[in-house]
Simulated assay, not measured.
Amino acid sequence: MLLLKELPTSKSLEKFVLRYPDADIKAISDFVNLLRAFSDVSDALDKLLARHGLLQGRWWVLVLLMRQDDLTSSPSDLAAKAGVTKATMTGFIDGLEREGLVQRLMDNNDRRKFMIRMTPLGQQKLDEVMPDYYSRVKALMSVLGDAQRDALVENAKTLAANLDTMK
Rank of each mutant, 00 (worst) to 15 (best):
A50H: 13
G83W: 00
R98P: 00
G83H: 03
A147F: 09
V32H: 03
A147W: 05
A23T: 15
M1P: 12
L35M: 15
N109P: 11
D24I: 09
K167C: 10
S12L: 07
E6Y: 11
L159G: 10
D164R: 02
D107S: 10
Q68R: 09
P21R: 01
L159C: 14
D24N: 07
P131F: 02
T158Q: 11
M66P: 02
A151P: 07
L101T: 00
D40A: 06
A151D: 09
R36D: 15
D107L: 08
L163G: 04
R98H: 07
M106L: 13
D24L: 03
I93T: 02
N155L: 15
L64Y: 10
V153Q: 14
A44P: 11
P21I: 05
V84F: 04
L144M: 07
V102R: 01
D146I: 07
N155T: 14
F114R: 06
M141H: 10
R117C: 06
K26D: 15
H52R: 04
A161L: 12
K86F: 12
M141T: 11
D70W: 09
R51N: 15
M141F: 13
L2H: 14
A151I: 12
F38I: 11
R67W: 06
F31R: 12
S142M: 01
D77P: 02
T90Q: 10
Y20C: 05
V84L: 03
P8E: 00
E14G: 09
